[in-house]
Design a protein around this nucleic acid. Structure first.
Length: 417
DNA sequence: TCTGGGGTCCTAGGACCC
DNA sequence: TCTGGGGTCCTAGGACCC
């Protein structure tokens, strides 16, 4: 009998697999990837997981263990990961279309067919991606997104393929912990536990009205998904809702000028991404915050401003972002992080002009387009706009980055026959 | 000494309106 | 003394995800 299936492809240990793609000698060796500033562990090979080093742990806490075990540690090389990610999904689309990309290393898909056809399909997807791109993936398929997640987890370490049907799920959910379900995090699972709900079957046995009342629409949706009713809909959005750029500084700063530089940098990033997406935005938000661990924790500031009309040029967004920053800034606070986010994103084509827009702007802006071309072409001596002075006093630390294998001619890997 | 960055969605509460 | 109720929109903040 044909039916609707929901599947999930997930790249195994994605950042590590990207590094291994260009360093096959690291196969079967412990490999970890760090966050910006070499702060935390954000990706672990299976060997690292087996050492029971958790995700997100501060690097300095496990540095010694890693060293003892001869682990290879990389600073994050996110440009590389993005290009590999694009290859994965472009390849996946040759055998499964459409797909719904969920994160840098995951995509959902919908498949209509018999159980046997679904099994063949997930095998085909896995084999195609692994052969064409070279990173290991696992594919799970079931009756809803939430159950596809469960399926995906099940055989990750073995075949990397799993079809989870209703009968099998009904058996295993008796002992399946709610806390491991996608969408149930630390706080939610604590509440559930306090209410006496531990396993999925506890939750499914509860009165639906009570679930709705106690846990809101979020709880209700999870309940349905767990029953095999797909309610987290397919949403193939053309554009993101928001685009953001933010970073912790290598060292704290109290200087407004340093923050202005940082904010200018982030404005450059988000407005460039915005233009690349063929879009403009109606809002910009600026945020600055001190360390999450010191005496100034409560001094985080956030401010948002609407534009008169949708814009995408670096200098227009920059002027407003800098104004915002000056309003938010408090003298004497040691800032550790700054960021910019644009939202109200819409395509160039369907701009809703404000009543008070003096003149419709010519979009895309010709000067801006020219600057983008120059900046894409030359790695050094790029044109900056606004407040960037060159010296990056706030720049992040990344001591162990791999080469730009895929995005810089000078760093292409060399193959020796 | 050293604790990431980029997203989405929901909710509570205030302002405002009729 | 008595002092509505319902709707919408916005914002700030929280929870969760990878």
């Amino acid at each position: 009998m044909k039916q609707q299936w929901v599947g999930l492809l997930d790249c195994n240990n994605f950042f590590v697999s990207c590094e291994r793609l260009f360093r096959p000698d690291l196969e079967n060796k412990p490999v970890a990837v760090l966050s910006s500033n070499d702060g935390c562990i954000v990706a672990r090979s299976q060997e690292i997981k087996d050492m029971e080093i958790p995700m997100g742990v501060p690097y300095f806490q496990v540095k010694d263990i890693l060293k003892t075990n001869n682990a290879v540690v990389f600073s994050g090389n996110h440009r590389l990961y993005r290009t590999i990610s694009k290859r994965v999904f472009a390849t996946m689309e040759t055998v499964q279309n459409p797909i719904e990309q969920y994160s840098v290393d995951e995509a959902f898909f919908y498949f209509f067919g018999t159980e046997e056809e679904a099994r063949q399909q997930i095998l085909m997807i896995k084999e195609t991606v692994e052969k064409e791109v070279g990173v290991p993936v696992s594919v799970g398929i079931s009756l809803s997104k939430t159950l596809a997640k469960v399926a995906n987890e099940m055989n990750k370490k073995t075949t990397g393929l799993k079809l989870l049907d209703f009968e099998e799920w009904s058996q295993i959910n008796l002992s399946y912990p709610l806390a491991s379900i996608w969408g149930i995090g630390r706080n939610f699972s604590k509440r559930l536990r306090e209410d006496g709900l531990i396993s999925v079957s506890d939750f499914l046995a509860a009165d639906p009205g009570r679930v709705r009342r106690l846990y809101g629409v979020v709880g209700e949706r999870i309940r349905q998904e767990l029953q095999g009713i797909s309610v987290l809909s397919a949403k193939n959005r053309e554009l993101k809702q928001s685009i953001m750029s933010s970073r912790s500084f290598g060292k704290e700063t109290i200087a407004l000028s340093v923050l202005e530089e940082a904010i200018s940098y982030h404005v450059e990033q988000v407005s460039y991404d915005l233009r690349q997406a063929g879009a403009c935005a109606t809002k910009v938000a600026v945020f600055i915050s001190p360390s999450r661990h010191g005496d100034f924790v409560l001094q985080s500031r956030y401010g948002e401003r609407d534009f008169l009309a949708p814009i995408s040029t670096t200098r227009d967004i920059g002027v407003i972002a800098i104004q915002l920053l000056r309003e938010l800034y408090v003298t004497g606070v040691p800032y550790k992080k700054a960021g910019v986010r644009v939202s109200g994103i819409q395509p160039f084509a369907v701009q809703q002009l404000s009543l008070f827009t003096p003149v419709a702007k010519k979009i895309p802006d010709p000067l801006q387009s020219t600057i983008d071309v120059v900046n894409r072409r030359f790695k050094t001596g790029r044109i900056h706009q606004g407040f960037l002075e060159g010296a990056r006093k706030y720049s992040a630390i990344a001591n162990q980055q791999s080469p730009a294998y895929t995005t810089s001619w000078g760093e292409l890997p060399v193959v020796k026959a």
